[in-house]
């Protein structure tokens, strides 16, 4: 097995008759930040969600730290659903951060971060909350522990969501446009948390429209277009001229929309 945190092999995803992911193969090296960019509707979210088995691929396979995710192939080469226990075990290595935060509205920040420690990891309340506080401190929100999501700004909610994932000590963090739902002045605080996470050596896959972030923090850039993976390269290569014509076009429309941060 390869040395990669995630291995995506010949992944195909169809919704009905439309092919959304067309034979995607991608390796995510351990300890690196991989950014998925591409136009709207190109399949970035779908690919990321497949990596968490929130979306079931139509064909192909995904390995997390060498272990198959979601499906296993039996002796005859026939694909079968993994058992719920096995799936939970593989998934426990992955943390996911959503565009819409998806915090549980009836729990405080501390409740959100400690819930799984208590229910899933079966820790006592005191121990779970202590661990949760460590994570909240890490994202700079220890003084908001008792606040409910509705009492927090978008940036704070997203940082709580990151703390919630980190509390379970994942090996890989997946981010789906973590700053897209935020007011521009709030994106910085979330990107900073992600930068320090990257500096600690966390394996990260980030779907983003923040090209500046992708160029400066990313170790590899994958460009998706119409469900096809056009290339995967180091940012220095991907963004250097001459660029791939589709990327060039994408960056142009991106600039037209008034983006301020670009390479």
């Amino acid at each position: 097995m390869s040395d990669n945190a995630i291995s995506v092999q010949h992944l195909v995803k169809r919704f009905g008759t439309t092919t959304v992911l067309d034979d995607i193969s991608l390796e995510i090296p351990r300890g690196q930040v991989s950014c998925l960019i591409g136009p709207s509707g190109s399949g970035k979210s779908t690919l990321l969600r497949c990596m968490a088995f929130l979306e079931e691929a139509t064909d192909g396979s995904i390995f997390i730290e060498g272990a198959p995710l979601g499906f296993v192939y039996d002796g005859a080469g026939k694909r079968q659903r993994q058992s719920a226990t096995e799936l939970r075990k593989v998934r426990s290595q992955i943390g996911m951060v959503f565009q819409q935060f998806n915090l549980w509205p009836h729990m405080t920040a501390l409740g959100n971060v400690s819930a799984a420690l208590r229910r899933v990891r079966k820790m006592g309340k005191a121990e779970a909350e202590e661990k949760a506080m460590v994570q909240l401190r890490k994202v700079g929100l220890e003084n908001r522990a008792g606040h409910y999501p509705s009492q927090l700004s978008g940036g704070q909610q997203q940082r709580v969501a990151i703390a919630r994932s980190l509390a379970l000590e994942p090996k890989i963090m997946l981010f789906d446009e973590p700053t897209s739902a935020l007011d521009p002045e709030l994106t910085g605080e979330v990107l900073n948390v992600m930068r320090s996470l990257a500096a600690e050596g966390m394996t990260m896959v980030v779907v983003t429209h923040e090209i500046g972030f992708a160029a400066t923090v990313g170790n590899q850039i994958s460009f998706l277009d119409h469900g096809k993976l056009l290339f995967t390269d180091a940012p220095s290569k991907a963004f250097a001229k001459p660029r791939h014509p589709r990327l060039e076009q994408f960056l142009d429309t991106y600039l037209d929309r008034g983006a301020s941060t670009l390479v």
């Binding site: 998934r91 549980w104 509205p105 009836h106 799984a116 229910r119 919630r164």
Partner: peptide, 24 residues
């Protein structure tokens, strides 16, 4: 999304039902 984040946190369907779905 709230159910998906419970799935990612490792909640079983029964736990998700009682701790997430019912209160909401």
């Amino acid at each position: 999304g709230l159910v998906e984040s419970a799935d990612m946190a490792g909640f079983s369907p029964v736990q998700t039902f009682f701790h997430i779905r019912v209160p909401i």
